[in-house]
Measured scan of single mutants.
Amino acid sequence: MATVKFKYKGEEKEVDISKIKKVWRVGKMISFTWDEGGGKTGRGAVSEKDAPKELLQMLEKQ
């Protein structure tokens, strides 16, 4: 499965696309949330040019 790689608060992170729940556009950035388990929700953002095609497809479906 595809993953999204991004930096959050200076830390490199990687999230499996299948865990992503919500995707939206903020200017030229793609923001998203995912389920971290245990009732926690993670947040992240990646530039439109660095976003994997699967993430962009999720954005178009909404």
Results as ranks from 00 to 15, higher is better:
1 M>I: 10
1 M>C: 14
1 M>F: 12
1 M>K: 05
1 M>W: 14
2 A>W: 02
2 A>C: 12
2 A>H: 09
2 A>K: 05
3 T>F: 10
3 T>Q: 05
3 T>I: 04
3 T>S: 07
3 T>R: 06
4 V>Q: 00
4 V>F: 04
4 V>D: 00
5 K>T: 05
5 K>W: 02
5 K>M: 03
5 K>Q: 08
5 K>S: 03
5 K>Y: 03
6 F>G: 01
6 F>Q: 01
6 F>P: 00
6 F>K: 00
6 F>I: 04
7 K>T: 08
7 K>R: 08
7 K>F: 06
8 Y>C: 12
8 Y>D: 13
8 Y>A: 03
9 K>D: 11
9 K>R: 08
10 G>L: 03
10 G>T: 02
11 E>W: 06
11 E>L: 13
11 E>I: 08
11 E>N: 06
11 E>T: 09
11 E>S: 05
12 E>V: 10
12 E>K: 13
13 K>Y: 09
13 K>W: 06
14 E>A: 06
14 E>C: 06
14 E>H: 06
14 E>F: 03
14 E>L: 05
15 V>T: 03
15 V>P: 00
16 D>E: 10
16 D>A: 11
16 D>G: 09
17 I>E: 03
18 S>I: 10
18 S>D: 13
18 S>G: 11
18 S>K: 09
19 K>W: 12
19 K>N: 06
20 I>F: 05
20 I>T: 02
20 I>R: 00
20 I>S: 00
21 K>I: 15
21 K>E: 14
22 K>D: 03
22 K>C: 15
24 W>S: 02
24 W>T: 07
24 W>L: 04
24 W>M: 15
25 R>T: 15
25 R>I: 14
25 R>Y: 08
25 R>A: 15
26 V>H: 12
26 V>Y: 09
26 V>S: 13
28 K>F: 06
28 K>Y: 09
28 K>T: 11
28 K>R: 05
28 K>Q: 10
28 K>N: 11
29 M>Y: 05
29 M>I: 04
30 I>P: 00
30 I>A: 02
30 I>V: 12
31 S>N: 10
31 S>E: 11
32 F>G: 02
32 F>C: 07
32 F>V: 12
32 F>Y: 01
33 T>I: 15
34 W>C: 02
34 W>G: 00
34 W>E: 00
35 D>E: 15
35 D>H: 03
35 D>A: 13
36 E>Y: 09
36 E>I: 04
36 E>H: 05
37 G>M: 08
38 G>T: 11
38 G>N: 06
39 G>Q: 14
39 G>W: 13
40 K>D: 15
41 T>A: 08
41 T>P: 07
42 G>C: 14
42 G>L: 09
42 G>D: 09
43 R>Y: 04
43 R>Q: 13
44 G>P: 00
45 A>Q: 10
45 A>T: 15
45 A>C: 12
46 V>I: 10
46 V>D: 00
46 V>H: 02
46 V>R: 02
47 S>H: 14
47 S>F: 15
48 E>V: 08
49 K>R: 08
50 D>T: 11
51 A>I: 09
51 A>P: 04
52 P>E: 03
52 P>Q: 04
52 P>R: 02
53 K>I: 11
53 K>T: 07
54 E>I: 10
54 E>N: 06
55 L>S: 00
55 L>V: 10
56 L>V: 12
56 L>C: 07
57 Q>D: 08
57 Q>L: 14
58 M>T: 06
58 M>R: 03
58 M>S: 03
59 L>Y: 08
59 L>K: 01
59 L>D: 02
60 E>W: 02
60 E>Q: 03
60 E>C: 15
60 E>S: 07
60 E>D: 13
61 K>E: 11
61 K>N: 14
61 K>F: 12
62 Q>L: 09
62 Q>G: 09
